[in-house]
Amino acid sequence: MIDEAFGGTVLSKILVGLKRVVDYNVRVRVKPDGTGVVTDGVKMSINPFDEIALEEALRIKEQGATTEITEVIVVSIGPADTQQQLRTGLAMGADRAILVQTDSPVEPLAAAKIFLQLVEKESPQIVLLGKQGIDDDNNQTGQMLAALWDRPQATFASKVELEGGKAKVTREVDAGLETIEVDLPAVFTTDLRLNEPRYVKLPDIMKAKKKPLDTVVIDSLGVDTAPQFKTTKYEPPAARSKGIMVKDVAELVAALKQKGLA
């Protein structure tokens, strides 16, 4: 909902996506039978880019001044255990959480359709997602949501400045930094330099237990989540052949010469 207070359009909600992924410190291994990667007993965390997205949402809300965000909502699509990551999001400062529960993997297009359902219900001014999940490395959901919603996308954001009903977003692109201006509502996806997420403090974890966390059964959203792509095999990457150690610069240069590189 958009308030018309302060003589202009005032921002209301930010929706943030939090994906539960294998922690970035885990060395992921392929199962011997090639049916997937080992996830049993492996540490799960909030996708790092999504943590950056939540941090940005909280900072926008805390800034107050020209923008009035009344609510930061964290959303995740995943199994029941994803409540852990949503609770962490609430402890970081989100106001409430929505878990769209499913035990099946959800492809980016289906995830975007689910987000669209929630967007239509919550009418946020900003949806903040990570640029990619560090599990599937797809880098798609934000762009797809923006397309389905028929709204702007500002991907790979390293700086977000809000001014009235618009945002100026600096993006990390291959050539350097690019700045675009988008009308709100819009979808932003985060890059690493956007901010450094805060640490969760113990009292906040206690407080987070009382914040609302709604669970939505995925089927109730009427979205077709049947996967389009079929993964038939998982393999470990080809190993590089064993290298040599040299003891000084002279040996290094000799070794490079041998390879025709010096």
Binding site: Q140, G142, L145, Q153, F156, D174, Q228, F229
Partner: peptide, 19 residues
Amino acid sequence: TTFGKDLMPRVAALLGVGQ
């Protein structure tokens, strides 16, 4: 590249397919 990663998912979604 950042160009393709930005664009192609938007194309796919408009076409109603995955990427």
